[in-house]
């Protein structure tokens, strides 16, 4: 039996508009602790908007979003609570260019978690080692390659010890030779049991780690399935069309 408690994220009948434009239509999604979900779909289908609603970077207008038992509404306290527990990695890294790699990683633990600097630095070094760039700790983001920057961004999120990680096309802005180093880190993270929602078109990654693949189009969830069935036996025509385009057949 599953009940509300088993889900770390619940979206129930979520609707969102940009002015007249209906960008999210009746989204329902339940995510269990430790689940790895890959979200794909054509550009402009609302994938980013949906995951950005989860940490309230975007505001939804109808329906309920519950994260880790906290209902997302306009209460600043709830929003702060949720953002502490939800990490996010962006397509364009969004590292702080005026801070060193280490300072990027310790900023939020120190100011949000009120952690002593020494402890925050120790934790940051631990995660920088996990993303395999401890030797870059004292450099500035501008001195790193794209792949390294994205790994720093992942480490920066992990330093907050989040219960969920959101990824919004983390490899789309990278040169092909750097994609693998970032995906490797994400695979490791998945294998350690992190709850992940990942918008990506890297189908290899989806096949390897996803528990579920979700296909979105025009603001709706069209189809969701285990990767095996999703790729081999897509149900809707739109999914088939999309897959043929992405997989290049």
């Amino acid at each position: 039996m599953t009940n509300q408690q088993d889900f770390i994220i619940t979206l129930k009948n979520v609707n969102k508009w940009y002015g007249e434009f209906h960008v999210l239509k009746d989204i329902n999604l339940n995510v269990k602790m430790g689940e790895r979900i890959v979200i794909c779909g054509p550009s402009g289908s609302g994938k980013s908007t949906m995951i950005r609603c989860i940490n309230h970077l975007e505001e939804h207008q109808e329906g309920d979003i519950v994260v880790d038992g906290v209902l997302l509404n306009n209460d600043l306290k709830n929003i702060g609570q949720i953002r502490k527990e939800v990490g996010m990695v962006f397509q364009h890294f969004n590292l702080f260019p005026h801070l060193t790699v280490l300072q990027n990683c310790t900023l939020a633990p120190i100011w949000v978690r009120k952690m002593p600097q020494k402890e925050a630095e120790a934790i940051a070094m631990k995660y920088l080692e996990r993303v395999k760039i401890p030797d870059q700790a004292n450099k500035y983001p501008g001195q790193l390659s794209g792949g390294q920057q994205q790994r720093v961004a992942i480490a920066r999120s992990l330093c907050m010890n989040p219960r969920v990680m959101l990824f919004d096309e983390p490899t789309s802005a990278l040169d092909p030779e750097m994609i693998k180093e970032v995906l490797d880190v994400m695979v490791e993270l998945a294998q350690e049991g992190m709850t992940m929602l990942c918008v990506t078109h890297e189908m290899g990654f989806a096949k390897k780690v996803a528990d579920r693949v979700i296909f979105m189009d025009a603001g709706q969830i069209i189809e969701e399935n285990e990767p095996e069935s999703f790729f081999n036996n897509p149900q809707s025509d739109r999914t088939k069309l999309f897959l043929s385009q992405v997989l290049g057949h």
Partner: peptide
């Protein structure tokens, strides 16, 4: 200062004052 910086701050849970002063 790009909007991405603001989003990164929010996603990390920094409040508006910290976002302004630190980033």
């Amino acid at each position: 200062v790009s909007h991405g910086q603001t989003e990164a701050c929010r996603a990390l849970g920094l409040n508006e004052k910290q976002r302004m002063n630190l980033v």
